[in-house]
């Protein structure tokens, strides 16, 4: 199964990091612009008050903007890839493989979100051009009352 993986990798599976962010209307507006979402419920408070939400809400996958830890640049891998993927495997080239994203409710401007990032799994698969390492990271997003807002399980593919 995972015979290619050293103990230094398997011992990290299940390890979590937690951070907390205050979400602002500006964060939501910028995320909406970046994905090309033009619905004014993401940017116009007066309009948003007339909707069922009563305030500015984020696009459904907004919590992706809270996923990667903002470590100082010198702590990033040489390719700038997120530290969440930086497990000690003999493969450096990373690409995004896939995602399973669950939305409990839309994030509102002004609320604090607690982010818990966990290395869920690392496994290998034989690809067309050699051995692939798949790194699975789960990120849970919770509101101040502890209730879940969203969860993403993302798979990254690393090649030698």
């Amino acid at each position: 199964m995972n015979s290619e993986l050293p103990d230094s990798v398997t011992s990290r599976i299940g390890v979590s990091q937690t951070r907390r962010y205050q979400v602002t209307a500006r964060d939501i507006r910028r995320f909406a612009q970046a994905i090309g979402a033009t619905d004014p419920v993401h940017s116009d408070e007066a309009y948003a008050r007339t909707t069922r939400y009563g305030t500015i809400v984020a696009p459904p996958l907004f919590c992706q903007s809270l996923t990667y830890d903002e470590v100082p640049p010198e702590q990033l891998p040489a390719d700038g890839s997120p530290v969440e993927l930086a497990v000690p495997i003999p493969a450096q080239r990373a690409v995004g493989g896939g995602s399973e994203y669950t939305i409990e409710r839309l994030v509102r401007a002004g609320e604090a979100i607690t982010v818990t990032s966990t290395l869920k799994d690392v496994y290998t698969r034989q690809g067309k051009s050699g051995l692939l390492y798949l790194v699975v990271v789960e990120t849970r997003f919770a509101a101040e009352d502890g209730q879940p807002v969203a969860t993403e399980v993302a798979t990254y593919i690393k090649r030698v």
Partner: peptide, 24 residues
């Protein structure tokens, strides 16, 4: 990868409008 997901989310929420929300 994440931006591709947002394009799919826009496809779905654009059709849904105010009728509902994307859950998964």
């Amino acid at each position: 990868r994440a931006l591709l997901g947002n394009f799919l989310a826009r496809l779905l929420t654009g059709w849904l409008g105010e009728a509902g929300e994307l859950r998964e």
